[in-house]
Amino acid sequence: MGIEFYLFLLINGLSQGMVLFIVASGLSLVFGVLRVINFAHGSLYMIGAFLAFSLSTLLPAGSIFSFLLLMLLVPLAVALLGLGLEIPLFRRIYGKEHLLQLLLTYALLLILDDACRLIWGGDIRNVARPDLLAGSIKFFDMFLPTYNVFILVVGPLIAVGLWFLLYRTRAGNLIRAAVSHPEMVGALGVNVSRVMTATFMLGCWLAGLGGVLMSALANIDLGIGMEKIIECFAVVVIGGLGSIGGALLGSLILGVGVAFIQLPLSRAAIVFPYFAMALILIIRPWGLFGKPER
């Protein structure tokens, strides 16, 4: 096999990692600011995917504008759902013991997953790729799906956008300040609880966007939420909880790792994320980009 095959494998792996990054960055962001591990994050991602499916049946099929509209509306809807969850529920558990947080978010996972079952049923569904992205691009003598290339563009855009938001805007400064010195930010007259709500909504927005992108990449069913939250945990453990850069690195390690591990060990691909996670926990328990807890 020539070098181009490995390049092809790399691109395919990166495109898989990008969707994972978008979802995992939301989980990591929420943890970084609110110190809550949101088990229901995968369910929000699944709701995004199913919402995209339902909305797509109302829009003209095959049009790129329909798809862009999905990418615009669905994450907003999931963010609004996040608002509806944050104010009555999450707000009460910030700073409480982990067991309580775990109970609440896990209960939410069960409730949201069953709500999906009631609304969308057990059918396997997907969103048709828009015509513009449905074909493939010739890559040496291989074919790369255009949609994967599209995801390869959207993923870094989101990463750059998040970086810009967190490090170059006032809102980002507030979020970061709320992480490190919540009391001081409050003393300076900033409404900390509003910052927290906004951060939670941003996390949900990212979950929703990941759901839309996934709905056209692969099939969606009632199992994808649970599947994704486990992958996301692997990502944030590898990258470091609370670090966006770590989420990016962790996602890409998983995406590319799964792609390459198959060559020598075809059956190891499924266990690779867990193996990588276990390895990191042994040698660097706080993750690649994380800081050790004091």
Binding site: L9, D221, G255
Partner: peptide
């Protein structure tokens, strides 16, 4: 119960 086969197709 796999829904995403893309990571395995190139291999």
């Amino acid at each position: 119960g796999e829904t995403n086969y893309a990571p395995y197709i190139p291999t």
